[in-house]
Simulated assay, not measured.
Amino acid sequence: MSVLVFPGQGSQFQGMGRRLFDEVTPFLENEQEVDRLLGYSVRQLCLADNDERLRQTRYTQPALYIVNALHYFQATAAGEHPAYLAGHSLGEYTALMAAGAFGLLDGLRLVKMRGELMAEATGGGMAAVLGLSAESVAHVLDEPALAAIDAANFNSPLQTVISGPADKIEQAEAHFLAAGAKRYARLPVSGAFHSRYMIRAADRFSDYLKGFSFRPLRLPVVSNVTGRPYPAGDPDKVIRAFLTAQITRPVLWQESIAWLRQAGERRFSEAGPGQVLSRLIADIEEALTAPSALTS
């Protein structure tokens, strides 16, 4: 058994899914409807991207959702039978689709709206802080000058992403480098995702979610919001609440992987373009199995 993990925004690249578009039957059966729903060819976007739209949130999110799904369908056709599913931010939608919460097309409708709403939240920025623990990052963010910034992604023991107004993200660089960060990398986004600044988008998305019904999960999906599997209960209420909260809450990726390891899982397979999550998981596992972690 294994854990299938699905990457989120930042993993996209021109050419992603190239060898899968013509091989994955569930996509081929729905390609015309996918393109009609989006208003453009997702295949053409991923393979050519002549206008560099893959850098834009409203296009990135649907494209990644579809390519993640291609990888999922390929993996299951090859005999993969995961025990758990997890996705990073946008990737959680593919995990929920794979668990049976909704079909491929309803999931696409959700991420299309999510991407459009998040793209409207301009004036923000994000940055990855590398080489500092989450505790050290929190200590720096306690400085009065950085009160407008939130922690957005807890990706690994020494990688935390922060989110806030673009000018504050720019100013924060000097503070983190002074605190010992090895690198401060501003991300190519125009919104302060997974932060207090996404509340309006979350409220509008919550209203949109009311038009969907969700099915019980066939497999456990580990939530970004809690770092634990989605709880039992009415799937309409639970999934709507968690997907709404995910827009403003930080991604607890490190905690999610730690929980899965505590549950006995050791084999993680990345179903999507690139190896971003695989590298993060390797860093998390290295920290969890280090002598200091084993004796603490």
Rank of each mutant, 00 (worst) to 15 (best):
V225R: 02
E116C: 10
G125N: 07
A245H: 02
S296E: 12
A77K: 15
A147T: 06
E33T: 05
F212A: 02
A75Q: 14
R279F: 04
G100R: 14
Q56V: 08
E170H: 11
L4T: 04
S136K: 15
G164Q: 09
T244V: 02
A202L: 12
A201T: 12
E80S: 12
S269L: 15
M198E: 15
T25P: 02
P229K: 11
A101D: 03
P250N: 14
E29F: 00
T122Y: 09
Y184T: 10
V3M: 11
Y72D: 03
L85Y: 00
S223E: 02
K237R: 08
L47A: 03
M118A: 06
E135W: 11
E265L: 10
A98L: 07
A147L: 00
S195R: 14
V34M: 01
S2G: 02
L110T: 06
S156T: 08
E270M: 10
R18T: 02
S133T: 14
A282S: 14
F242L: 13
F193H: 12
L47H: 01
G272C: 09
D106Y: 04
M113H: 14
P231S: 12
F6D: 01
E135N: 14
D49I: 04
V137D: 04
H139R: 15
S41W: 01
D203R: 15
R200A: 15
G264N: 14
L45I: 04
S133W: 11
F13R: 15
Y230P: 00
D51C: 14
R18P: 00
V276I: 09
R55N: 09
G191W: 07
T248G: 12
A127I: 11
E52T: 15
V129G: 06
L132D: 01
L219V: 10
A202G: 13
Q61I: 11
H194D: 06
T25W: 05
Y197V: 10
L90I: 11
Q246T: 08
S163L: 03
I66H: 04
P231T: 04
R261D: 01
L104R: 04
R186L: 08
A245E: 04
M126F: 03
Y65I: 14
V42S: 09
A128T: 06
L28V: 07
K182I: 13
Q56H: 03
Q275L: 02
R215C: 09
A127P: 00
V3Y: 10
E29H: 05
A290I: 00
E135F: 06
A75C: 11
M1N: 12
Q44R: 12
A152C: 03
F212W: 01
D203I: 07
T60Y: 10
M16I: 00
D234W: 10
G123Y: 10
F193I: 08
K210I: 00
S11F: 03
N30I: 03
P188V: 15
N224L: 01
A271T: 10
V222K: 00
Y65N: 07
L38A: 06
Q159M: 06
